[in-house]
């Protein structure tokens, strides 16, 4: 018995519980905002150091700090609990990306370093990297062609 049963699919979409969008959006809003605020606090801290760092180094340091914190939180099993509450709030910032690299790495460590950990590390984050690199190439070509227009 295999043909899509329209009447049943309508029944399913009518009867099955749905995500509560207002609640989840509110949670994503405040947790995402808090993560960005923490990032800003690190930026302010690094800019106020006695050894005056150039702006680029400050933003790189901030990113690295957030990634480190996330990696540790993922390792001790806290970040997935934050994610279960926050949803997009903790997925969209750089911390979410770090979590999506560290979590499959932990999971696949048991299958060995090379074929387990290394080959599965980007199983979740892979598409993000592919699209990130591809779009940067496209933008690079546009800038190369229309260089004059941007100066």
């Amino acid at each position: 018995m295999s043909e899509p049963n329209k009447r049943y699919l309508e029944l399913v979409s009518k009867k099955m519980p749905k995500s509560r969008h207002l609640t989840t959006m509110f949670r994503a809003f405040w947790t995402g905002g808090t993560i960005c605020m923490i990032g800003q606090a690190f930026t302010d801290l690094y800019s106020s150091l006695p050894a005056a760092l150039p702006e680029e180094d400050v933003s790189a340091l901030t990113t690295i700090t957030l990634i480190l914190i996330t990696a540790v939180l993922t390792g001790i099993g806290v970040y997935d609990k934050i994610g279960a509450y926050a949803g997009a709030g903790s997925i969209v910032p750089i911390t979410g990306f770090a979590n999506s690299v560290v979590s499959p790495a932990i999971e696949h460590k048991r299958e060995g370093v090379v074929l387990g950990l290394c080959s599965n590390m980007f199983s979740v984050a892979g598409p993000v990297i592919v699209f990130g690199i591809s779009s940067s190439v496209v933008v690079g070509i546009i800038v190369l062609i229309f260089k004059g227009a941007f100066v």
């Binding site: 099955m16 519980p17 970040y79 609990k81 994610g83 999971e107 979740v124």
Partner: peptide, 17 residues
């Protein structure tokens, strides 16, 4: 979870279903 879904430590939300 690992077989059918995502790594355990991935911070994603479960759907209500």
């Amino acid at each position: 979870e690992r077989q059918y879904r995502y790594p355990l430590e991935l911070g994603n939300q479960r759907t209500p279903l």
